[in-house]
Design a protein around this nucleic acid. Structure first.
Lengths: 231, 231
DNA sequence: CGGCATCCGGGAAGATACTG
DNA sequence: CAGTATCTTCCCGGATGCCG
């Protein structure tokens, strides 16, 4: 005879009043946080979310969106005709989860096993700029930088030691960087010279590009764990 | 014929260069972050970790500790004789993950479904003090507060608009709060008057206790998601 | 095509019992 | 006390198919 699991009402949760544990109840399932990541710069359709998440399957994405909506993190909206499509957007509170990403990102770039050569969604790249922007390095530098990553376009405005990033198809900018997100990341974060990146197109003042690439310093990696053991 | 899944080498990872995704590769498995939480105030033994994690089973805890150790987040040490026991400690880098907790906690206390009446480990409570401490409210208030939660003892030192918390069995303090973590939390965070908390013992100046309980303001909750839909 | 339901295989999580 | 062994249950991921 099988024990009837009366204790649980279906969901697997941590029975813990710790707020961090509750956050994991809401965002801790596989893919949930990355789904949120894909929505940080505005609403997206199902397929566009899926495109930014290599490896997720449609049914899991459906489940996550349902869960996030019932938690009040995501809202599903149907755009008015003629564009009668469903889009998913973060609620105000959902958008407030960005510091979680920044903390995760700042910590994990120091990981010895972090592989920066994998695929990189446009949202990830833009988020990394917001996370790693160093006001001290920017000083009084001011510029508008546009990004063209496949079909997606963004614009970053740097002024007064702050950076503002939004989706924007307007090409008016001091600098336009075109290419795959991973390649732009290699240039900006990795310090790879543009000459070594044939997939990268830089339109605008090269000096501005070089300066831009210094504004997002990455913290140093930690030493890998010693398998053999020290002294 | 079944497709041979060559792509995966056993572990289920996100194929994503995004550092946040990598953080989830390291800490995203169920219980992993909460295991780290239990180690923030110093090394612990297997059973003591398990005691702070209601619901985890021994085999899962074993797996998590193995994984965290191979990632360089946790280190297993055997104390020298006569206390020949194994303990688990965070590495320096593992300790740097605390901002992740703080971001998770600050965000999730605003959740409409956060239930503050569940069980609460001593580590969670201490971590919540570090997370929610408000220097502005502290002003030039200075005090040493000791906590006795079952077998565990901590001491918080508040001075110069900062708070320092550590494990400490020394009872020299301006204020000693004794009781279960959830009860101390109800007093400090929940604003429940001590008269309503028979399980709470306050030793020291009651005025200091009242003042202490004002130093950790919680952000307001968000409205629950409207099931029926608004206008 | 976009979104969601269904079925299946594999693997991780959970409960319990057992061992050094 | 500190885990291991075993078994069950459930989640994840892939494929397929329905329906607007």
């Amino acid at each position: 005879m099988k024990l009837e699991k009366i204790t649980s009402e279906g969901k697997r949760r941590y029975d813990d009043a710790c707020a961090a544990a509750h956050a994991l109840d809401l965002l801790g399932e596989r893919w949930a946080l990355l789904v949120v990541r894909e929505l940080f710069f505005g609403p997206k359709r199902f397929s566009d979310i899926k495109a930014g998440l290599p490896g997720i399957s449609a049914n899991v994405l459906t489940q996550r969106l349902e869960g996030l909506e019932s938690s009040g993190i995501v809202r599903k909206t149907r755009l008015p005709p003629p564009a009668s499509v469903s889009v998913y957007a973060l609620t105000d509170w959902g958008r407030e989860s960005e510091p979680i990403f920044q903390a995760l990102g700042r910590w994990a770039v120091r990981s010895p096993m972090h592989d920066r050569t994998l695929s990189f969604s446009a949202n990830s790249l833009m988020l990394s700029f917001r996370t790693m922007f160093d006001p001290a390095r920017a000083g009084d530098f001011a510029a508008t930088v546009a990004f063209r990553i496949g079909e997606e376009t963004f614009k970053a405005e740097i002024a007064d030691g702050a950076i503002a990033i939004r989706r924007d198809s307007d090409a008016e900018a001091d600098l336009v960087l075109t290419g795959p997100a991973a390649v732009i990341g290699a240039f900006v974060h990795g310090g790879v010279p543009p000459e070594a990146l044939p997939a990268l197109t830089i339109a605008g003042d090269p000096a501005v590009a070089r300066r831009f690439a210094t504004l997002f310093p990455l913290p140093s990696k930690v030493a890998p764990p010693e398998a053999g053991g020290p002294a």
